[in-house]
């Protein structure tokens, strides 16, 4: 018995020593990355399980093909920053030249992104920004202040500028959600909206089930609720479905950011009014072009630089809502019952 234990302990000690020795030996020296003809771009979404990001990747792959680059689209299933870190690390190790990332937690990925940058990888963020010191350029879907004002106006018009409203958001930590909510609150201070009151911000975590439950909770807990703003494609669709299921269409108005295909049925049934978004494929497309130009040295993040992004036209690097350097895709696209049949994504 004692003999076995001694053996086991000796083996443990030997194993640990070996690993340490190996580690020390390996750390003497630095690693290298290879450079190839076309660029290798790693497209890292918040998660691969939400359809919006799949739309981004379609545009991104198209752009890569036009530019002669290779693009890899992969990401975690959990919507957390730490879940993205292994992908950042391996992208850097595998010799990717650029990482295009949308993250739910800029702080968690910043150290990994900085380590990648130290290895020569260029980081471009899109859709949801990382910490500014860990990326070169941020590609924004639209100007954040515009979202704030247009969403408040959209719901205000539907409810006659009077009554209680609520916001159904995504994750509490989501940077663009919080920015948009901030601008919505600023917009609500205008005298035009003085009879409207924001009673609750609910969080659906970009999950259909949770968003539906949160909507149900809003309906139950706030009997005087007149309108809901849901600036997330998952949330607005779940809210519309929930309103329809509970028979509240028309009694509680709805607006938000949604995909026209998802919302068509509800808009026609009167469960949702005007809502907005942007072209998700174009966003991925633009972000890839930006990454390419950064790698080619044509873009450095200086304010005022211009470039042409394939079929989308010319763009300029600017300051947007106090954030810089940013490339903005364009103004929000508004969908109405009249024009919704024109769009198919």
């Amino acid at each position: 018995m004692k003999h076995r234990k001694k053996l086991g302990l000796a083996a443990l000690a030997a194993g640990v020593t070996l690993i340490i020795a190996l580690a020390v030996a390996l750390s003497a020296g630095a690693g290298t990355t290879k450079r190839q003809a076309g660029y290798k771009i790693f497209f890292l979404p918040k998660t691969t399980t939400i359809p919006v990001f799949t739309q981004n990747s379609i545009g991104a792959k198209r752009a890569a093909k036009e530019l002669g680059d290779t693009l890899t689209y992969n990401g975690p299933t959990a919507v957390t920053g730490p879940a993205q870190v292994p992908f950042i690390n391996t992208a850097a190790r595998q010799g990717y030249n650029a990482i295009v990332i949308s993250t739910p937690d800029g702080n968690a990925v910043a150290p990994a992104l900085k380590r990648a940058a130290a290895k020569g990888v260029k980081v471009v963020s899109y859709d949801a920004d990382t910490r500014p010191d860990s990326r070169v350029i941020f590609v924004a879907p639209t100007a954040n202040s515009l979202i704030g004002t247009s969403q408040v106006e959209a719901i205000g018009k539907q409810i006659g500028y009077k009554g209680d409203i609520a916001i159904l958001s995504a994750n509490v930590t989501s940077p663009n959600q919080n920015t948009w909510i901030k601008f919505m609150k600023i917009a609500l201070k205008k005298p035009k909206y003085k009879n409207m009151k924001l009673v609750k911000i609910a969080y659906g975590n970009d999950e259909p089930t949770e968003s539906a439950k949160q909507t149900q909770g809003l309906i139950q807990a706030y009997p005087n609720l007149k309108g809901i703003i849901s600036p997330t494609t998952v949330g607005v669709q779940a809210a519309a479905q929930e309103l329809q299921q509970e028979g509240k269409c028309g009694k509680i108005k709805l607006t938000g950011l949604g995909l026209p295909n998802d919302m068509r049925k509800y808009v026609k049934a009167g469960c949702a009014g005007n809502f907005a978004l942007w072209n998700e494929q174009d966003l991925g497309y633009l972000a890839t072009y930006v990454a390419h130009y950064v790698l080619a040295g044509k873009l450095t993040g200086k304010i005022g630089e211009t470039f042409k992004a394939g079929h989308l036209g010319t763009y300029k690097v600017q300051v947007s809502d106090g954030n810089k350097p940013v490339v903005v895709l364009g103004p929000p696209l508004v969908f109405t019952p009249q024009n919704i049949d024109k769009y198919h994504f």
Binding site: T49, T54, P208, Q241, Q245, D262
Partner: peptide, 21 residues
Amino acid sequence: ITGGKNITAYQLPDSFLKLAS
């Protein structure tokens, strides 16, 4: 299987959705 997509309510027949309403 879902492959990063989802199935949305508008794709489902009313006979099925009625179960919940």
